[in-house]
Amino acid sequence: MILNVLRQGVQDQNLQAFYPPGSLEQLAQQIAHSGALARIAAEWRLPTEVAMDLARLALVDIQGCLDDSGSMAFEENGERIDDAKMIVSKVAQAATLFDTDGIQICFLNSPAVGQGIKNEAQAQHLLSSINFSGLTPLGTSFERKVLQPLVAAARSGTLRKPVLAIIVTDGEPAGEHRHKLVQAITDAKRALATTRYGADALSIELAQVGNDQKAAAFLNEIDVHPEIGSFVDVTGNFEMESAQMQQTTGIALSPDMWLVKLLLGALDTAYDSHDERRR
């Protein structure tokens, strides 16, 4: 069953350059023997089949890019920072169950970088050292800190695993052109397409914290963009996503399922398409 999930993930995301035939059996056995699925199902109160879907995280390296602009601290009494800490902690926890390397975290403004973040304590320690101030150079920083190193590794043939980049932000870009993020992603995708790994070496999740409606509108523009929308998934804040789910399906969205959507929306077309139909 785990092997089927991994095979579907490779096919779904066109990851054959990383995982040729016969390469997934050992990975599936490692996941089965680790007890990761039972553990996350219990801790996140997930149905077994949903926990099984999270095995796709074993196929990627996760890189987080966090918004450390001033609005994160000043708006909503700093709750946005608390939400960002929670997201990083949960993502690190889930990722480490399937890949013991942990996750990498960078920031839009601060030069600080967290390597191998594996649990809540490490995530909290890293974020507590950050001074949230300045603007929101989403595209500029994401390009310099995540996209350019990724493209360089792909061009040199040293990219070990595909990358799931998770951007956590509370607002529209500031201090750069509004379309800088779209242009940066477009350029990176085109560059990756010329390498043996292909454009699908990169998947992107945009996660919103806070209730800024202009930010939500900006992120939605990217989600439905004709050229890069298929490579990007957007997860609104929990309140927005929960309200949409309740309105369209009558089903209450739990915080844990919201996190699953955040983790898998860019990796599993089933989760992404469910979200698109709600819009």
Score class of each variant (00 low, 15 high):
165 A>D: 09
151 V>G: 14
210 G>F: 01
264 L>N: 01
43 E>H: 03
232 V>E: 08
243 A>S: 06
105 I>L: 14
200 D>N: 15
274 H>D: 12
245 M>I: 10
225 H>D: 13
90 K>V: 02
85 K>N: 02
127 L>Y: 04
5 V>W: 07
179 H>M: 07
87 I>T: 02
2 I>Q: 01
74 F>H: 13
89 S>H: 01
173 P>M: 08
57 L>S: 04
37 L>K: 06
142 F>E: 13
202 L>V: 04
185 I>Y: 02
228 I>L: 09
152 A>W: 11
180 K>L: 07
15 L>D: 05
13 Q>N: 15
11 Q>D: 11
277 R>H: 12
179 H>R: 09
261 K>A: 09
147 L>G: 12
122 Q>Y: 10
225 H>N: 10
234 V>G: 04
19 Y>N: 05
87 I>H: 06
62 I>V: 15
1 M>G: 12
47 P>I: 03
121 A>I: 15
37 L>D: 05
83 D>N: 08
122 Q>W: 11
84 A>C: 05
122 Q>G: 13
89 S>D: 01
18 F>C: 11
207 A>N: 05
13 Q>C: 14
148 Q>D: 15
278 R>A: 12
54 L>M: 01
224 V>D: 06
199 A>F: 07
197 Y>H: 10
262 L>D: 01
26 Q>V: 06
14 N>D: 12
12 D>Q: 13
182 V>L: 08
91 V>Q: 01
238 F>Y: 08
42 A>V: 03
43 E>F: 03
214 K>W: 11
33 H>A: 14
110 S>I: 03
68 D>Y: 09
131 N>D: 13
226 P>K: 02
226 P>Q: 01
112 A>S: 11
184 A>C: 08
74 F>S: 15
132 F>E: 09
10 V>T: 02
48 T>D: 13
259 L>C: 00
275 D>A: 12
212 D>R: 07
88 V>D: 00
72 M>K: 08
2 I>V: 14
41 A>F: 00
76 E>N: 07
216 A>H: 02
80 R>Y: 09
62 I>N: 04
268 D>S: 10
106 C>Y: 08
252 A>P: 03
229 G>C: 03
113 V>Q: 10
52 M>E: 13
257 M>I: 02
20 P>A: 06
261 K>S: 10
187 D>G: 08
206 L>N: 09
